[in-house]
Design a binder for these strands. Structure first.
Lengths: 131, 131
DNA sequence: ACTACATATCCGCCTTGACGAATATATATT
DNA sequence: AATATATATTCGTCAAGGCGGATATGTAGT
């Protein structure tokens, strides 16, 4: 459990060197997100999502929290000040990327629509979006 | 030649996801550096250095300039403002890394010692270090 | 043209990591 | 206990990329 390695430069960049993982991080930007939302929003198969989340977890970039059947993932802020600043700039960058923006819009829609898609009825919403 | 792709997020991070390449970038921090100095300072075999420099060039992170037998490599600043800021933070981070610091110290020594090692006698020094 | 030197590329080998499909695990419900 | 649902892991395959060693290329000097 406590494998909370101090942020290593290469480890971080390897974690960031994949578009799927960048999209995941972008969606976790403000908040914990449940796996089922990643699957719904990104339209990728579930094992692929899980594998990339596991990668991010091993790299120490995100942490997971279980809530019943659901798993929530959130970004871990680096302790190291330098790492923190790099990471902050990366997130700002992501915030401007087209595809990432579309993802976040879809996440909002999916969470806030009165008619939630059947596939995620009952799933716990990100706090920041829960009405 | 003009393959100067606009900085792509993943491409950049893949380029940064290797310690040898980070060390190269750290040495190029302020200035153009000649390949022979990389070899001398980093104590790695020359093909390895060249391969990583080629990788960085393909990724659009550095550019090369020939001067007789010598090749000088320098960092290309990203045009995109976001990329530029991420990159700047990365360089600040590198500036604090132990191994990178040792590399830069060795570069200074190698360039400024009265008795230059035989292997690089006559090689053109980085401008910022040339006495 | 020949030689020497600096650098780049090729080769074969090996590891990492991406993928889809299948399967395992964990939890909740009945 | 059996079932359903959410998520994780395993398997086999494949491409990217790391490595050292050998070799090719490019330039300068004789």
């Amino acid at each position: 459990m406590g494998k909370q390695k101090t942020y290593d430069i290469e480890i971080l960049f390897r974690a960031l060197a994949d578009r799927t993982r960048l999209r995941l991080l972008s969606l976790m930007g403000s908040d914990e997100v449940c796996v089922c939302y990643f699957v719904e929003v990104m339209r990728l198969n579930q094992p692929k999502i899980s594998r990339h989340l596991a990668y991010l977890r091993r790299a120490g970039v995100v942490a997971a929290r279980r809530e019943g059947k659901w798993m929530h993932y959130r970004i871990i802020e680096p302790e190291d000040a330098r790492a923190k600043r790099v990471f902050a700039e990366v997130r700002t960058w992501l915030a401007e990327d087209r595809e990432m923006q579309r993802d976040r819009e879809r996440l909002m829609k999916v969470c806030c629509t009165p008619q939630v898609p059947i596939s995620i009825q009952g799933a716990p919403r990100p706090r920041s979006l829960a009405a």
